Amino acid sequence: MCKELSGWRNSAEMPWLKGGPIHPLQQSLKDLERAYTNFFAKRADFPRFKKKGQRDSLRYPDPKQIKLDQGNGRIFLPKLGWLRYRNSRDALGAVKNVTVSQSGGRWFVSIQTQREVEVPAPSGGAVGIDMGVARFATLSDGSYLAPRNSFKAHQVALRKAQRTLSHNTKFSNNGKKAKARIQKIQARIANVRRDDLHKASATISQNHALVVLEDLQVGNMSRSAKGSVEQPGRNVRAKAGLNRSILDQGWFEFRRQLDYKLAWRGAHLVTVPPRNTSRTSPECGHVAAGNRRSQSRFACVECGFEANADHVGAINVLRAGHARLACKVSGAARPPAAGTRRSDSVAAVSCT
Rank of each mutant, 00 (worst) to 15 (best):
T113W: 11
Q114D: 11
Q114A: 15
R115P: 04
R115C: 02
E116Q: 09
E116I: 13
E116N: 07
V117M: 14
V117H: 10
V117L: 12
V117K: 13
E118M: 07
V119N: 07
V119H: 13
P120A: 00
P122Q: 12
P122G: 04
S123M: 05
S123H: 10
S123Q: 15
G124W: 12
G124P: 09
G124F: 02
G124S: 09
A126R: 06
A126L: 02
A126V: 04
V127E: 00
V127G: 06
G128H: 13
G128K: 02
I129T: 03
D130Q: 14
D130Y: 08
D130P: 05
M131I: 03
M131Y: 15
G132L: 10
V133K: 02
V133L: 08
A134D: 12
A134P: 09
R135A: 00
F136W: 03
F136K: 01
A137Q: 12
A137I: 11
T138V: 06
D141N: 08
G142E: 04
G142A: 03
G142M: 00
S143K: 14
Y144R: 02
Y144D: 11
Y144E: 01
A146C: 09
A146G: 03
A146D: 05
A146W: 03
P147M: 06
R148V: 10
R148G: 06
N149M: 12
N149R: 13
N149K: 06
F151A: 15
K152T: 08
A153G: 01
A153M: 08
A153R: 14
H154V: 04
Q155H: 01
Q155E: 13
V156G: 05
A157T: 04
L158C: 05
R159P: 15
R159K: 01
R159H: 15
K160G: 11
A161F: 11
A161N: 03
R163W: 02
R163I: 01
T164K: 14
T164G: 04
T164V: 13
L165H: 04
L165A: 07
L165V: 05
S166F: 07
N168H: 13
T169Q: 12
T169R: 13
T169K: 11
T169P: 00
K170P: 01
K170R: 15
N173G: 05
N174H: 09
N174Q: 02
G175T: 11
K176H: 10
K177Q: 11
A178M: 09
A178E: 01
K179Q: 08
K179S: 05
K179D: 06
A180N: 10
R181C: 07
I182Q: 09
I185F: 15
I185G: 04
I185T: 03
Q186C: 10
Q186L: 07
Q186G: 03
Q186A: 02
Q186E: 14
A187M: 01
R188A: 06
R188W: 07
I189K: 00
I189D: 09
I189W: 00
I189Y: 02
A190H: 05
N191M: 06
V192R: 06
V192H: 07
V192P: 04
V192A: 12
R194P: 08
D195L: 05
D195R: 12
